[in-house]
Design a protein around this nucleic acid. Structure first.
Lengths: 199, 199
DNA sequence: TTTTATTGATTGAACGTTCAATAAAAACAT
DNA sequence: ATGTTTTTATTGAACGTTCAATCAATAAAA
């Protein structure tokens, strides 16, 4: 049904289909034919809208990172008290946001994580995201810890978040969001307690 | 130079070459031709000794997991006091063992981690390993924490270890082993402190 | 001479990309 | 409204490439 203004619709549709395909068979077997089938369109359309398979994959990763960034930003904008604890809790919540904790999103992200080790464009995206998490955590911890302790706490919490996330992606029973959040909160509280923070 | 008794030599050689190839170009581009080139042999030999590419990949992952298991077991056998803290420290040390913290081993492991989501044989290996880490931690924590707290601590520490490991694999500067170990130790101490452990 | 190890050209399947053909909506003309 | 042209969106078969696997040929040890 050719109509005008299909570009944004098809792009979104194909990005979603990419995640479905990766969820179903993994990145290695997510061929353009299979992705197109998930979207209910022809294979040729991928090159038309994304210049090629690589373009589609990069756009898909970019979308996942944007969604994560939005989830965190939204929660941080809605904190009701301007304390380090509230902000960091918002960051934790954002990272375990429903949109992120979804089988197909998790599998897709982990697949990209692995391929970002060798694909420079994906590597760039992944590092921007990593640094954002770390520096956000660091600047909040800095409000009640020494520079050195803040860095240590930020590194530890970032590792905890990614680790919970990774194990959740691989566990047969999936990720228990509430339990994961509680573990991250506990770690946060222990770090803040060390600085006797009253901000 | 065809000699008798080449099988174990070639198998080891090809497994090592697989890790090198994955380190160099990633799992997706680690073709049998490239792996064979790294080993300095012909491509056909892979099917001869491993039945095919899949067999080689599975053997490679199995070797990495075995090395990890050995590193942990060795350290645990050498603890000089039979306390939970000493055992768990040994487990942490084993997981950050030099043999594991090597660019090519880390990249290979992460690549397998991702593909284990869709390859059943790799998934089996990965889960056995995951459960071993969790249950080892759990049984040690259990010596001074309630069942519920022991599980919580084990889940948290396992996530911390994997998270540090993952971020180390992706970081441009690589993994800082001492810093990672210290973060894991700190988490361990905090968990044990909650149980007022005197064992 | 027999056995064991290894090679590398060949084969067939699978993949991403391309592009001429097609179809439907939009724009225009009557 | 109605018919005609133009524009936009989409298809899917064909093409060239890449890869893993195979196997007859070869070479070195036993």
């Amino acid at each position: 049904m050719p109509k005008v203004g299909m570009q944004p619709i098809r792009r979104q549709q194909l990005i979603k289909a990419t995640m479905s395909a990766i969820d179903e068979v993994g990145l290695a077997d997510a061929t353009v034919a299979r992705i197109a089938k998930h979207a209910g369109v022809s294979a040729g359309i991928i090159s038309h809208y994304f210049g090629g398979k690589d373009g589609l994959l990069e756009s898909t990763m970019r979308q996942i990172l944007n969604d994560l960034g939005s989830a965190v930003a939204e929660r941080r904008a809605n904190v009701d008290e301007d304390t380090p604890e509230a902000h960091i809790r918002a960051i934790i919540d954002g990272n375990f946001d429903r949109s992120q904790v979804n089988q197909s999103v998790m599998k897709t992200w982990l697949a990209f994580w692995a391929s970002s080790m060798h694909q420079h464009d994906l590597q760039r995206l992944q590092r921007v995201n990593d640094r954002r998490l770390y520096s956000n955590l660091c600047s909040q911890f800095r409000r009640c810890l020494s520079k050195q302790d803040a860095r240590r706490a930020a590194r530890g919490l970032a590792a905890m978040i990614d680790g919970l996330w990774l194990r959740g992606a691989l566990a047969p029973e999936g990720l228990d969001v509430d339990r994961a959040r509680r573990l991250a909160y506990d770690y946060l509280d222990e770090q803040l307690a060390q600085g006797e923070c009253f901000a």
